[in-house]
Design a protein around this nucleic acid. Structure first.
Lengths: 205, 205
DNA sequence: TAGATTGTTAATCGATTAACAATC
DNA sequence: TAGATTGTTAATCGATTAACAATC
């Protein structure tokens, strides 16, 4: 299959979310024009996005809403549940733990780590914060393959060292640290400073 | 000037941050190869990024570190200070208020709004949470031009109505709501669900 | 059949990479 | 001058848009 752009995947989430929030029974079908308008995406781009995954619609009719929602759920992988470990129980970390929308996607943060002795042992969102020195051990014991990093840059080295030796598949990096692994780990970086920062640039431009 | 890609702006932040964190006095110059390696960006792309803004370097020598840092600061607009209003004092909102790195960029959240009576009147990060119904009024009185949205989708309509009538320039949208203004407002959306979600897709791919 | 709408192919647009002339 | 390195131009790659044939 042809490589699917990252941007397409993000838009699939929009389509999915739009269908999920729309609980009207009829009509059963929605056409690319309507779904495009609702999500703010051109209908032609929407059709192209969907066509990466085969014939999703019905010519002359549109897309069967329930069917499309189901298919998107499978494509995106959110028909399953995932256990996630969070490293960093600071302000951002705490917000993520309590973020309900992740759970709607089947994503559960079930382990929390920090290096701050004041935080270790405390309960955050129902889970006890563990000492980060047990990170590798815990990930292995519980077969956790997804890690979220919400730490300060300075702490990154110890964490990279530990993660190198695990079988994790993916890291969602909310820290400003740059990650560089030998192994093939999927990394998505979300840099809040650059994001808000680029807004500032655009204001002055 | 030719339009500068959004991706370039984000990379400028990486260069800037890298220079700022490097407090070694000598050498005074850094070449695109070295700075590229440190930030994980190809030197040729780095040079192209910088060349959007004129001649930033010195042939045969590289880029003068202090000079480049200063120039980037000005280009990015972070040599000034900005007051920002936050709408939504939930978990994400609270994390943003306490996020120190924004302040390093000269970005200060000085007004906080919510519609939850339990939150209104309480103090978060030194500021008292105001009733969202005073949003428009407060923005105008204080000449605030940047708004951060960290709210639930359902609350979006009232907020859009109020913001329509203000002179704000930019919105950083951390909610999953879609914004659609008549006026020309710079909007940057940061969708945490799509971001973590796309990681899930990539795991299964 | 006529109308609606998909899905595909080709054209366009935009961003990155490669090559290299300019020059310190 | 020789070596290093920038900044620009052309080539490539990738994503979006437009056009339209296929078909329900």
């Amino acid at each position: 299959m042809k490589k699917v752009p990252e941007a397409t995947i993000r838009r699939l989430f929009y389509y999915y979310r739009c269908l999920k929030n729309d609980d009207s029974e009829s009509p059963k079908y929605i056409c690319s024009d309507v779904l495009g308008n609702k999500t703010g995406i051109k209908s032609t781009l929407l059709r192209r996005d969907l066509s990466f995954f085969g014939h999703m619609g019905h010519k002359g009719k549109g897309y069967h809403k329930d069917e499309l929602q189901d298919k998107l759920e499978k494509i995106l992988g959110i028909d399953q549940e995932y256990e996630i470990a969070l490293v960093g129980a600071g302000n951002v970390g705490k917000a993520l733990i309590k973020y309900k929308k992740f759970r709607e996607l089947g994503l559960y943060i079930t382990e929390i780590f920090d290096n701050d002795l004041d935080k270790i042992g405390r309960r955050v969102g129902g889970y006890i914060v563990k000492n980060v020195k047990y990170l590798k051990e815990t990930l292995e014991q519980n077969n956790i393959e997804i890690v979220v990093l919400a730490i300060d840059e300075e702490e990154i080295d110890e964490i990279i060292d530990q993660l190198q030796e695990t079988n994790i598949k993916a890291i969602w990096n909310l820290s400003s640290a740059r990650l560089d692994f030998d192994k093939n780990i999927i990394i998505i970086k979300e840099d809040l400073c650059c994001s808000l920062g680029s807004l500032i640039y655009n204001i002055n431009g």
